[in-house]
Computed example of a mutant assay.
Amino acid sequence: MKVWTVANQKGGVGKTTTTVSLGGLLAQAGKRVLMVDTDPHASLSYYFGIDAEALSHSVYDIFIQSPDISADKVMDCLCPTKLDNLYVLPATMALATLDRTMGSEQGMGLVLKKALAKVEHEFDVVIIDCPPVLGVLMVNALAACHKVIVPTQTEYLALKGLDRMIRTMEIMGRSLQKSFDTVIIPTMFDKRTNAALASRERLMTDYGERVWTGVVPVDTHFRDASLVQLPISVAYPKTRGVTAYAKLLEVLEK
């Protein structure tokens, strides 16, 4: 089972879009995919019409029942989507309390990794959608993953957020004694603007081989797909956004 974490310490850069788009393509290819929503705002959950506040189980259960949660209880927390093989472990606003109530407890940084290990035979790929805040949730997501995908909007302020994210991973890497396989994804790219062109050039200069050579373009079909609660590859398969994420997936799966 592969575990990919989609993270950036800046909001609005395309983390949830990236999670949904990759998850949809993988599921369509016959992979068993679990998307984990660790953001208290629950954008990934709501994308698929899941109101975690109305559910009896969510990813919050994983944390409050740790370390005793069983594989069956993890599976009980999952919600299906309209697409076969694609599941969501939904978020809830209660996640926002974890740093205050459990953040200092021993072993809290490995809760998600241990829970996912109990269902590793149920899924081929897990994609974790992170909140844009460094805390126990992002620490768990980074500790659990084999690869970090960092969507970065091609504009100046987003590049500042990327700088913080890279520093965070360096600090965490030393703490966890692991190096992160990192892929930086230029998103919301508009080739008509000088700002986007300059931002992409700076990405390539500053981060070199860690930057995917392609781009995810601005595409209004991403928003349209969310209205029908489907990945863009299902709702609008012949669009620029789908082509971009299909090419990215080829790189990620190598």
Rank of each mutant, 00 (worst) to 15 (best):
A7K: 06
T17W: 00
V20H: 06
L25A: 03
L25R: 01
V33Q: 03
D39P: 11
H41M: 09
S43C: 08
G49M: 11
G49K: 12
I50N: 07
A54N: 13
D61N: 13
I62L: 14
D68F: 10
A71N: 07
V74Q: 06
D76S: 14
T81N: 10
Y87G: 10
L89P: 13
Q106I: 14
Q106P: 12
G107R: 01
M108D: 04
M108I: 13
A115G: 11
A117Y: 07
H121Y: 04
F123C: 08
V139P: 05
N140H: 02
A143W: 00
C145A: 06
H146E: 15
H146S: 13
K147F: 05
V148H: 06
V148A: 13
M165Q: 14
E170T: 11
I171N: 11
S179W: 00
S179A: 12
V183C: 13
M188C: 01
F189R: 00
F189K: 00
A195M: 15
L197H: 08
R202K: 08
T220S: 15
F222G: 07
D224S: 14
L227N: 10
V228C: 12
Q229I: 09
S233Q: 01
V234M: 09
K238M: 10
G241H: 01
V242E: 04
T243Y: 12
A246H: 04
E250I: 04
